[in-house]
Every structure is written in C-alpha cells, then in structure tokens.
Design a protein around this nucleic acid. Sequence first.
RNA 1: GGCCCCUUCGUCUAGCGGUCUAGGACUCCGGCCUUUCACGCCGGCAACACGGGUUCGAGUCCCGUAGGGGUCACCA
Length: 529
Amino acid sequence: MSIRTRFAPSPTGYLHIGGVRTALFNWLLAKQAGGQFILRIDDTDAQRNVGEALQPILDGFRWLGIDWDEGPEIGGPHEPYFQSQRLDKYQAAAKKLLDSGHAYRDYATTAEVTAEREAAEKEKREFVYSRKWMAETDKQAAAFEAEGRSCVVRLKMPRDGVCRIDDLIRGEVDFEWAREQDHVIQRADGTCLYHLATVVDDHDFEITHVVRAVEHLSNTPRQVFIAQSLGYELPQYAHIPFVAEPGSKNKLSKRKIDKYLNNKDFKRLYQSGAAVAEQIGQAVDPSTFNPVLVDFYRDIGFLPDALVNYLLLLGWSLDGETEEFSREEMLKQFSLDRVVKSEASFDPQKLTAFQGRYMNRFHLKHKAKMCTGFLEKAGLVSAPIECEELAYLKQILEAADDRIGMAGDILNFDTFFVADDDLEFEEKPFAKRLLKPDQAGFLLGEFRKLLATTPEFVASDLEQVLHGFCETHGIQPGDIIHAIRVAVTGKAAGFGLFDTLEVLGRERCVNRIELALSELEKRRGQTVE
RNA sequence: GGCCCCUUCGUCUAGCGGUCUAGGACUCCGGCCUUUCACGCCGGCAACACGGGUUCGAGUCCCGUAGGGGUCACCA
C-alpha cells in the first residue's frame, strides 16, 4: 500500500514556519515513496471567509514548492477536503459510536460538569466524570429532556487498562485509559468536534502515516479509541518535536513577536526585512509581517529552497555533517528514524546563513528577476522594467557579487537608480570623508576633472587613473577613495569603487562629484558661522 | 497539580559501550586578504544537567533527581 500523509491547516490567514516544517516532513515521507501528500482544511470552527483565510496558506505552500496531490483547488478522489463540507460524515460516525455503545448522550450542563471537576480538584483527586447525566436508553434521554435539558455526545472511554501508542519517533508510549476523559465529540447543536473529525477524515482519506507535532501526543489515546471503536485500522503515528522560540523551548508562536524582538538575532532579521518593506511601501503590521510566518521571507526576497533546507535541518539530520540538500536529495535521504526527539529552537542567524549560501549560488539571471520586483515596487525603475534598466541592474548585480543576501538587498543600492539631483548623502560618512579632511574638497575637484577627460571609462583604466592621481598629489589611495565613494553613491559601503564608477558612467560620476562639492561648500559655510 | 514527552558547545546537531583528549554547522573572537562593506581562507573559544548503578570500560544501557516543554475545552 502506498504511503499517504496529510497536513491539515486551519484557515487562519497565514502559514506558520513550524507548520511548514511539519508539512515538509509529511510531504517528504509520502513523495519519497511515490505516495500522496494531502492537504485537508480543518475549518470545523466555521468562520466566514474561509477562502480568504486559506489563500495565503496555499500560496505559501506553492511558493515553497510543497505541492499536494489532493486537496483544495485540485480536488481528488476523496472530495471534499474541507471539514466544513464533511459534517454529515462526522455525524454519521457519532451515531455509529452511539449505537455501538462507545459513546453516549450526556445531559449534564456545563456548570454541572465544571462543578464535578472543581470538586475533584479541591479534594486533590483525579477528575473522572460521574456519568450522572448519561443517557444510554431513549427512556433515560426522554426523562432528561423532560427536565428541559439538551445533550452532547461524549465518548464512553474505558476505565481500565492501558492505551499503548506505537510511535515511529518516540517508541511505545503508554497512557492509562482511566485518566482519559469522556470527551465531547458532538456539540449540543449537532456539530462535531475536531478529534472525531480528524479520525474520520484520516480514515476516509486512507492516511497511512499521521505525522504531526508532539503536542498532539496526549490527544492520541482518545483518537485511537475513536478509530478502534469505529473499526478503523490505525495509522502509523509519528509525533515530531515542535519548533521552539529563539532562545527558549517554548513553542514558537506568531503572537509573541514582541517578546522575540528582544532577541537580538530575531530583531536583526526582522529589521532587515522591515527596511525592505519600508522601501517598497509594504505594511509592517506584525500580524502579517512576521518572521514566524512564511510570507515574511517571500516578501523580502528569500529563496524558498533556502527556507526549506533550513527547516529540514530543524529536527532532522542525515549524519551531522551534510547540511545542504536539494529537493531531490532530501527526498532521497529523509527518514523518520533520524528525526530528533527534542524540540528545536528557531535560529534566525542560521536561516540567514543558508539564505546567503543559496543566494550566492543563484544565477545572475534569476537574481535579476527577483530583484526587479523590489526595484519596481520601490519606484526605482519603470514598472515593468525596461530593457536598459535590466541590463543596468545586471551590471550592478555582477559587481555586487555576494553582497545581495536576499533579493530585497538590492535596495541597498538604491542610489544607483536615483537621478543625480535626488542623490542624498548619508550624514556620517559625508562628515567623515568629505567635511573633516581638509584636502577632500580640493582632491575631489581635481579628480573630477580627470574623470571628465579619461578616454576609456572602465574599471581597470579608472584604477590606473586613480593611482596616477595619487602619485601626482603625493597621497595614498585611501586618502581619496572613500570620499569618491561617498560623493558618487552617498554611502560609506558598497562594492568595488572602480566598478562603481564604471557602472554609474562618466556623466553621472562627474555630476555627482560636483553635487557633493557644492553640498560640501554649503556645509562648510554653515560650520564657519 | 495529574499524565506524557524531552535533556551533548549560546543555537542546530553527530554520537547507537572502547576508534570521544566528544566531530560538523551557525554565531562569536583572533589573523590573512582588502579602497569601504561583504565574501573567501586560516586559527581559536565553547557541551555530554546531576546522582547512583550495570560493565574491565558509559555521552552511549538502567534507576532516581533536577530542569525544560506539552497536554488536561461543547478550540483546532
């Protein structure tokens, strides 16, 4: 029988990276064996805009290259894949459990059950429902109804023995049945609850391996009970550790972003993203723009392969040495038995390092394509980009080499794209390199003249020109190079100066130096006053 | 609190009784390269939670303790 796995997101409007990690393991396990990976939508909680809240999740998976064989938008042989459209199946299952005596109608009010629970707590005794309001016959039910009570359906859990779960990752785990509660599986309004639904669906969809986060481990006995009572064959369970917060072992949560921002690495990641977002005019509302969510990475120009590779290693390793896995390699090598048992903290720096490696190896052509979107959104090139601009971008990318860690980093080179008149000089480098050195203005002026007359405006020649210039004036290259960089780019850092000059071209270099000089004059005047 | 899970450098991990003076990666710190910023290269700091067993021998097996986490809904 072929392996069938599933990932079952609730339509919440975002894709959590911890969820992606779980989905990835499921996907890998199924696809490597030629099986199917199914996406099922857990929307029994019923909100209105399921479609709207689902789209970002589907988009996220598509971006990551995690494709599903059955599920929303593509359907499949077990349609529908939305729990909200399968309610009748759950009700049928509930009825079956009722009929077979594995569940019962319970007429207790919430207050009555709560009272029992609290009493048990007070006496420091384990709570087990008294089943006082249990109705196993129609006659009993009628009596309760005559009192004006309504009922829910509860599981009639065993009160002795042990539930042994054979977990592919944790081995055998025992739970005493007596400690399990008579969980509600159907509400008073007739709708059914998650645990019933998930068991029914997993069976209907012929899921062979349930790979999910450990927080579900303690829920498993009741699901086993439901499945067995319904006569289902049990799937293989594999409870993987969850993805934890940076610097702690708590579960990574989107809502705690404020706390994570106190972590310096997390903050750095967030800020580099926020800088990009700001330049392209994207909102940085933490509910959507958040390093815990996949969209964040897409929006600032990460490579999906880098994210996936990082996530793969968060809780799994091949040999402790190999770190880079292409999709083919991970499909070939992945195995559940090498999944780590303990929770793994999310490490923004390591993720960034993976991204850097992947980006460096990325083809210039593709890099240009990725960067184009950011330049367009920032209004630095025409939208859509024109041929000349694209060629210009490629020149910059070539010179920038591995200084583009993520596509959004192209915006660090924004001054290459602005009109000369709009060039702004960064305050500190301008002061340090132009304002402070007495000679800077004079040297810059002289160098500008030289640039205006240099026959070939190419990097190698320009380097010669500069060296000659230094000799004439009896200075070291370092005495003038920084000033030139600030003058033509407005910034202290960038790629090689001669490449910078060549890329900008003679006219702009000359213009910008002139601009810098007049700015210098202006400021010198101010300081004198 | 009950139950369950987990515990090797700051972080991700290798290790399945001797080859461990514990390996790799990220970070960090030096150095080299260098016109800046990066990259790259070389080097360095840094861990078996603790206590008992078992054994000739324990990071590796067993039992405790401690710590961390999860779960205990008419949420998913």
